[in-house]
Write a protein that binds this DNA or RNA. Sequence first.
DNA 1: TTGTATGCGTTATCAT
DNA 2: ATGATAACGCATACAA
Lengths: 330, 330
Amino acid sequence: MATISDVAKLSGLSKTTVSRVINNHPYVSEKKRELVLKAMKELGYTPNPSARRLRGQLTTTLGVIVPRIVNPFFAHLINSIEQAAYKKGYQVLICQSYEDKQKELAFLDLLKTKQVDGIIMTSIENDWAVIESYNEYGPIMLCNDYVNQKEVPMIRLDQSKGAYTGANHLIERGHQKIAYCTGGLFDEEGKGKDRNQGFQRALSEAGIKIDPKWIFIDQHTIEDGKHVLRQILEMKDRPTAIFTGSDEVAGGIILEAKDHGLTIPNDLAVIGFDDQPIAEIVDPKLTTIRQPVDQMGEKSIETMIQMLENPEMEIKNYELPIELIVRQST
Amino acid sequence: MATISDVAKLSGLSKTTVSRVINNHPYVSEKKRELVLKAMKELGYTPNPSARRLRGQLTTTLGVIVPRIVNPFFAHLINSIEQAAYKKGYQVLICQSYEDKQKELAFLDLLKTKQVDGIIMTSIENDWAVIESYNEYGPIMLCNDYVNQKEVPMIRLDQSKGAYTGANHLIERGHQKIAYCTGGLFDEEGKGKDRNQGFQRALSEAGIKIDPKWIFIDQHTIEDGKHVLRQILEMKDRPTAIFTGSDEVAGGIILEAKDHGLTIPNDLAVIGFDDQPIAEIVDPKLTTIRQPVDQMGEKSIETMIQMLENPEMEIKNYELPIELIVRQST
DNA sequence: TTGTATGCGTTATCAT
DNA sequence: ATGATAACGCATACAA
């Protein structure tokens, strides 16, 4: 591997001058600049990022932590973040936490060791109190997931409003017996609590009581959705509509419902969340709540770069609009 | 950021001893080892990978180049590679080439600058002659995509056989008018040529002539599939079956066909490729050719690590079995 | 405008 | 069993 010294030697100049050329510094004569450029090309020289990082330079690399890329929502979110970052000259390091606290912390170490300039977390496993301790090494922000601390930079959606809108849509369609299916828990606190609140608010405003047996927690995949439907089938008193926290779960419910001879939305109305590609693939097509993934990526990068350029900047929180997409499943 | 010197100072020992503890070297007394461990914990010390890499160490990091992670096939392939790598103590750097030659080369520079120990390419944009020049910096292997050089380590599938099997399945179902839809070209050489060959062989063995107007090239997405179906609808002489190069395209075809009142498989039989989740989501469920993604990941990592441990090893090529999954669309 | 010398954090070599 | 020191490749303070 050719080093800066090799380039210096070949061009008959000093390492300093070569370094100046690499970094577009002024005070280099045009003649020598070309000499250096020529030598670099001849040797196929690439600056060694490790050495640069060690020297304390900016890495122009950002870390993005996601639970798992096989989840299409996160694949698209990463994609939009990466595209936006690329436009600004940043690389993106994709980190899969697999929802594991330890892994998440290991990725935060990237910041500590200057592998990345900043980290965008699309999901958060550890308490913020733990994450916060890494903040001294560089900016950390949340995109999609969030915590209840105002001083954390966040790009988030009004999940509560999204769930409220979705639930209301079901109520407007005349449903009273509404089941609820979440990827989190149905607690006051804890994962997915905003959606829970929005859902509860819509129902309570309509004077509908929530039936605990129609609450399904910790549901994520198509398989989970199928399982949920089978549970519903076994009930004497069945819901006429179901609100789900993801298009995948909603898709699973629809698939299994059809297999059991149910008609969607007549026998069971289903509403999803995310507006993933699957929403238009299932039959009937899925009514769902769209998350503006592209905007989220753009805004995250914009915010991150601002923080990098001006570390003393005041913390900003952005809330992006969420939208109900009515299709055929309701 | 705490450094090895800080740990040395706090524990009252030398950097060397600390380094020995970090790297599990022998010749360090139990007493001092514990002293070091305690100091490391107290300072929240993490070794700086940049310094290690600069020093010439193995990085225990592998690069994986994919066209784009929003393609579910690649998301799953990455996932399986990452899982296998993790078991062996390796990190994975995910690199999206977006099918761009320049980006691909930029990622290969990771090898040159010792950011990664080796690179697994799941797609290849540049000629192998170009890629090969990076080989001196570390092992490069292909997984999924391939080139016609024997001396390149590859984990591949018998795409020709897969296409042959799929086409034969359609023929056995009584079809004579079979369309073909590929993500590549329909050339002798060039992308997707193996599948082309397999398809052609099946048809020619059955004495069927291929109709050029039923050949669709460069088709990748659900939208592409919808477009293909619309083109078919405009034909006076329509095919009764279509072989596609991806489940997504097949899914698009089915969706659009239903929108236009066609019945699958009666009016048009459709066969996909990959056995992605979408194959079980569309209605009717998709007959497709399964690619053993998990095995591909496992085998890639196994091979890569062998090459890393024994650089003089002879080049190996593996061919994994490909399987026809018959569902309802044919 | 150009060059020399230093240090970033780590590990291997060579003492002791 | 432990420690001092050099070197990895680079960018900067300082000197010329």
